[in-house]
Design a protein around this nucleic acid. Structure first.
Lengths: 369, 369
DNA sequence: ACCCCTCCCGAAAACGTTTTCGTGTTGAAA
DNA sequence: TTTCAACACGAAAACGTTTTCGGGAGGGGT
């Protein structure tokens, strides 16, 4: 008796199975994402069975497994990442916060981050602080709400000026790992990736000194930008180490990054330096253009070294010697450190933070001899 | 009898409440994110009550609302975005897929996208295809699994070469909006943001023709890159419209974007063009450097116009006249179109796709006269 | 005829929200 | 005293998964 009933049910199941096969297009709205529940309903099995079938669980018979998998493929089933994130408490997404993306250096860092992130199955969310403290805070607070697994960031100018890092400590205290790069601060304990700005500037300055130059000018940023300060210090130390006086008139600290041509022109015209060390590409290329305008030959009349081996330095005429700062490598390293911490979070070896220093090199081109 | 039991329970509850108040720091792990459930437990109310209190629901008494809000602030409660995404079926995240980020143009597009996305409460996921078809497909399939609300993309070279767009149609068929920009295809129906490459090239070429030049060279890409082809067509049409013969020897189609100096040098040396129109910045600046090396004065001996108003053109010596292609504006427009479609998806005005054309302009600098 | 083991499968909890609906208590009006 | 509204709150479903556990059916061995 039981058998008879069961047979009937089975036949009905097969019938409904075939029916659903034939009318699948009407029954499931192809426009929307298909879920386990829908497949389960169509096939008249439970959600668990569908899930297990798709994950090749040994609990499921060969028969139903194939049936489910065929259906899933037919409907182009893809598991819902959000649901998985909620369950696993992992989003497989990391966020990189940078001041500006149109700076070539930051673009190369993103490139590095993206590549190792992708290799490890992570996605990269990009946030721009626009050098604004508020945007940095807003972004971090927003994303800290479970949207991502960790941060990679470079401080905005305003944040460095204010020395207010509460948003970062807060995130770290909630157990979310943070890796800082380039523009970092000692006030925060976390993994960091930097270059030795001080040493790199020292070496560049010494390069000039070894050529016999005495009047070496420096075009730098205001001191609250951490890397600017470090590079200024390196320049100063190199001068002093070699018994050259540090002439304040030869040091130009630029605040307004939009309008500084006149200042550089005044520096070159009035001080007539033999060499210029600029802490970024834009300052360097501008100095070159102005020197040319003033009738100076490069590098015979004046030599110039920039910082950040970007696209401008390479394609400028004359091409610019620079301290190369490998953004890709920094990004890769930062991503590696972050992912390491995420994957090994069971070990919970907190407070064992590392600071990686990426090596720099002086790339000699046409602006020096 | 019942009353007595209830009283006892109430007293116990109050006791536990006070206890929890006093020992709250131990009881809730500050290190981890705090949830509604935890707050509810601590305060001995239901999850619903906590949720409503935090959202200032009128259903909740002033008393408990304040208590809950105070607690939430104390523990720095932030709602879990993933849970919200799952419930609302909206992630408030859009993805932009580009071939490479180190190209200044694409960086500016991201900048534009990010800004309007942020203004509207969206985050931006950046994916790099590295000009690879496979990476493009992988990225899209991965993200289509509910991680994001929509795509903004520019096709990889390989995808354009293969003319295989199944991954894009698939995503669109699942109801996820896609906006393409710059490198688009007619094979896909969706919103698009482009510039009139053909017309821009036509105008640049005509600029030369109006100056009286006859030998006008073109440095372009292989034809399967959509924008390269369009710009080549514009050049050709301008020549023909003005009764100038289109000399194949004056057209250089560059395939290998890493090693083309020799080809450009041969073109300039052997053909001695009066003017060169290059379809991107790199080709233009390389032509300038080579012309200089060959002893040609710019713009007296030879004039040059590039494409894409990027950082190189501005800082090159001499600075380069270019067809400006406003990446920021393209990004902004693309993001607006995508978000519009997302927010008005109830209206479901499918198939009403638009193609926005961003205007270009010829920016005259030192490489032309 | 009974027991046990294996094979398949379903129910339910969990992740963290929001929201609808139901319900108990209170006070006032009849 | 009864009735009804207002008020304050809780239970439960829902979003889409994964996974643990329990259990029914069937077969083989006594």
């Amino acid at each position: 008796m039981h058998h008879k009933i069961k047979d009937k049910i089975d036949r009905l199941k097969n019938l409904s199975y075939l029916y659903s096969q034939l009318n699948s297009i009407q029954k499931i709205d192809m426009k929307r994402k298909v879920t386990l529940k829908q497949i389960a309903k169509e096939l008249d099995v439970s959600i668990s069975t569908v899930s297990k079938s798709l994950r090749d669980s040994p609990e499921i018979s060969e028969d139903t497994r194939q049936k489910v998998q065929a259906f899933a493929k037919l409907y182009n089933y893809k598991p819902n990442n959000i649901a998985l994130s909620l369950k696993n408490k992992k989003t497989k997404t990391i966020c990189i916060i940078i001041p500006e993306i149109i700076h070539h250096f930051f673009a190369t860092v993103i490139s590095g981050v993206e590549h190792v992130a992708n290799e490890n199955g992570y996605n990269v969310l990009v946030c721009l602080s626009d050098e604004s403290f508020d945007k940095e805070v807003i972004n971090m607070e927003m994303l800290a709400g479970g949207s991502i697994d960790g941060f990679i960031m470079s401080l905005s100018k305003e944040t460095q000026q204010r020395r207010d890092f509460h948003h970062i400590t807060e995130v770290i205290n909630q157990g979310m790992p943070v890796v800082m790069f380039d523009r970092v601060t000692n006030d925060i304990l976390c993994d960091k990736v930097i270059i030795d700005d001080n040493l790199a500037a020292y070496n560049a300055t010494r390069f000039f000194i070894n050529k016999g130059y005495k009047k070496i000018a420096l075009i730098t940023t205001v001191d609250y930008v951490s890397v600017g300060k470090l590079r200024t210090d390196g320049y100063t130390k190199a001068m002093m180490d070699h018994d050259l006086k540090v002439d304040p008139n030869l040091i130009l600290k630029i605040e307004d990054t939009d309008n500084f041509d006149a200042q550089i022109e005044a520096l070159i015209r009035d001080q007539k330096p033999e060499a210029i060390f600029a802490v970024n590409e834009i300052f360097a290329v501008t100095a070159i253009k102005i020197a040319g305008k003033l009738g100076l030959k490069i590098p015979t009349d004046i030599s110039i070294i920039g910082f950040t081996d970007g696209i401008i330095s390479k394609y400028s005429t004359p091409s610019i010697s620079t301290v190369s700062q490998n953004g890709v490598k920094m990004g890769e390293k930062a991503a590696k450190m972050l992912i390491d911490r995420l994957e090994n979070e069971e070990m919970e070896i907190e407070e064992h933070y590392k600071t990686e220093v990426i090596e720099t090199a002086l790339v000699e081109r046409e602006s020096t001899r």
